[in-house]
Amino acid sequence: MEKVTLLIMLFDLLLGLGLLWLAWQLLESRNLFKAVVLFVAFGLLMALAWVRLDAPDVALAEAAIGAGLTGALLMAALAKLPSRDKSEPLADEKGHWLLRLALLLVAAGLGYVVHSLPESAPGLSAEIANNLASSGVNNPVTAVLLNFRGYDTLLELMVLMLALLGVWSLGIERSTREEPVGPVLTTLVQFLTPLLILVAAYLLWAGADAPGGAFQAGAVLAAAMVLLLLAGWPLQGLLTGVALRLMLVAGPATFVALAGLTLLDAQLLAYPPQHAGKLILLLEVAATLSIAVTLAALFLGYRPRTNKEPG
C-alpha cells in the first residue's frame, strides 16, 4: 500500500515539474511554431493533472478547449503572420534580474499563503450534497454550472458572443487554400467526424449524471467542424446569414428567455424542481449547439456571408 502512495507522489511530483518545464520551454523557445506545439502538449499534461485532482469534467474541457481548440486557433493565427515574424530573437534578458527577484518574492509569498491554509476544508461540498436532489441532475459540476450558479453560465455564453462579434469586426476574409488536401487528411476526416459527433452526443447526454456537459460536448462538436474546415469543406459557404446567427444565439437566447419566464414568478432563474432536469437538458442542447458553432466560427476568423449580403 505504501509503495503505491509513494509511486503516486512521485508521479505528481514529475507531472508538476513537467508542467513547469514545458511552460518555461514554450515561453522561451526561439521558434514560435515549436512554442505552439509545446503549448498543446502543455494542455494535454494539464488534462492529466485535472484527472489526478479528481476533476474529470475539467479534464475533458481542457483537452477539448484548452489544448485542442486553442492549439488550432494558435496555429491558424501563426500561419497568418508574415514569415520572418515566426522566429524571434529573444529580448536581452540581462536587465531583468530585478523583475525576476520581485516575481520570485511574490511567488514565495503566495506559496507561504497557500501553505498557511488549513489542510482540510469542505468548501461548499456539503451545501451541494444537500441540494443536489432538487437540482435536476446528479453530476454536481453540471448542477453548479446550470443551476446553482447558472447565472454565471448565462453571462459566460455572452462572453463567447462578444468575442465572436470582435473577431467578425476585425477578421479579414482569406481566400481558401490553394493546395489540395492530401488523402490522409481526407480519410482521417471521414473517419473522425462521425466519431466526434457521437462523442459529443454522448458527452451532452451523460453530463447530467457523469462527467461531461454542454461545454465539453460543444467543444468536441466544434473540433469536428474545424476538421471539416481544414479538409476544405466549404462550411462557411453553407452556413451563413440568419440561419447561422440563429444557431449562434440559440444557447444565450434560450437562457435569457428562461430567465425572463422565471422572472414572472419574481425569482430570477429559479426552475420549478419537478421540471429542473428537463429545463437543464433543454439549456444544454441549445448551449452545445451555440458553443460548437461559435468556437468553429472563431476558428474560421471572419464573418461568412452569402453573395447577396453587404460587406
Binding site: 448565462l154 455572452m158 458572443m161 462579434l165 440568419v242 446567427r245 440563429l246 449562434l248 444565439v249 444565450p252 437566447a253 435569457v256 430567465a259 425572463g260 422572472l263 419574481a266 430570477l268
Partner: peptide
C-alpha cells in the same frame, strides 16, 4: 413596486443584444 427592476436592468439589454445580433 413588484416589477423586478433590478433583474430587468440586466436581462433587457441582453435580450436586445441578441435581437440586434440576429437582425442587424
Amino acid at each position: 413596486s413588484e416589477i423586478p427592476w433590478g433583474a430587468l436592468l440586466i436581462l433587457l439589454p441582453l435580450a436586445a443584444a441578441i435581437l440586434c445580433f440576429v437582425w442587424p
